[in-house]
């Protein structure tokens, strides 16, 4: 089950595994049980496999289930309170035995939340990694996921985002919708998202309100920007005010589409090179 084969066709930035990833794989190889803590999130290991993940950035299972109306918030809170005295042991089982949720839907939610949170927990630059042996979480996947598969999926997701629209400029900015071209139509799922793009809400706000994984919203936002239905990110402010993470201003005259804030592909390449250098 547990394989440590190197990922196929990865860009150089992830070919060299940083220490934190090695730590996860090392713990997995040891068959460790406990919590892998980083600033950006926590992975729970059970016998060397990832059984659950949490991140403050990503909506938890509770949000996935309550925001869209699958479970009333009060029902979840009561279930959590009833099972909470022992670190929420058996919350999942409680929801199923009380007939509030089927095992299938719970499992789908848990796996979805696991990979969503893992993306942020394993993010480059997520701070130092600590491991607390023996710590368990009351919610856990019926079939835990091999650590290597979790890492591989997180890398694939980062690539996927950059393939659709390079750069993280839209990930945290308020979203502004653009008019739908006459004659075209918008699918229901996109409409739900666009209706909330009010110029104030960020992708994280939308994920919480819709009860969708944050990665899904980030990806859909970039796809909608590509389709012209969301305003592209604003160009970074010029001059020394720009933060260290911002794209440096270019001296060459900007092409017309740059005025709309489209990040040129060569910038993405530069960012990848920088990420690769930082990962060394």
């Amino acid at each position: 089950m547990r394989t440590t084969e190197p990922p196929r066709a990865d860009p150089p930035s992830s070919a060299t595994l940083p220490t934190r990833q090695s730590m996860l794989l090392r713990l997995a190889a040891e068959g460790a049980t406990g919590a892998l803590l980083r600033d950006t999130g926590t992975l729970y290991l059970r016998d060397g496999q990832v059984s659950h993940a949490e991140s403050s950035a990503a909506p938890g299972v509770d949000v996935l289930l309550t925001a869209g109306g699958r479970l009333p918030r009060a029902v979840w809170d009561e279930a959590a309170a009833r099972t909470g005295r022992h670190r929420r042991t058996g919350l999942g089982r409680y929801l199923v035995t009380e007939g509030l949720l089927t095992p299938g839907e719970l499992e789908i939610c848990l796996l979805t939340a696991l990979h969503d949170a893992a993306l942020f927990a394993l993010a480059p630059g997520g701070g130092p990694t600590r491991f607390r042996h023996g710590v368990a979480h009351g919610l856990h996947a019926a079939r835990p996921v091999p650590a290597a598969a979790v890492e591989q999926e997180a890398r694939r997701r980062r690539r996927l985002l950059d393939d659709v629209w390079p750069g993280p400029a839209m990930d945290t900015a308020p979203l502004v919708r653009r008019p739908v071209p006459p004659g075209s139509s918008v699918p229901v799922r996109h409409r739900a998202l666009l209706d909330l793009a009010d110029g104030h809400s960020t992708p994280a706000d939308l994920a919480r309100r819709l009860g969708r994984p944050l990665f899904h919203v980030l990806l859909e936002v970039r796809r909608l920007a590509t389709a012209g239905l969301l305003a592209p990110p604003r160009p970074p402010p010029p001059g020394p005010a720009a933060g260290a993470d911002d794209v440096p201003p270019r001296d060459s005259p900007a092409p017309s589409w740059a005025a709309e804030g489209f990040v040129p592909p060569d910038t993405a390449l530069l960012l990848r090179v920088r990420a690769a250098l930082e990962a060394l």
Partner: peptide, 14 residues
Amino acid sequence: DGAGREPDGAGREP
């Protein structure tokens, strides 16, 4: 109108 105007756009919100 087939163009995604919001009929009850807040329907998914809590």
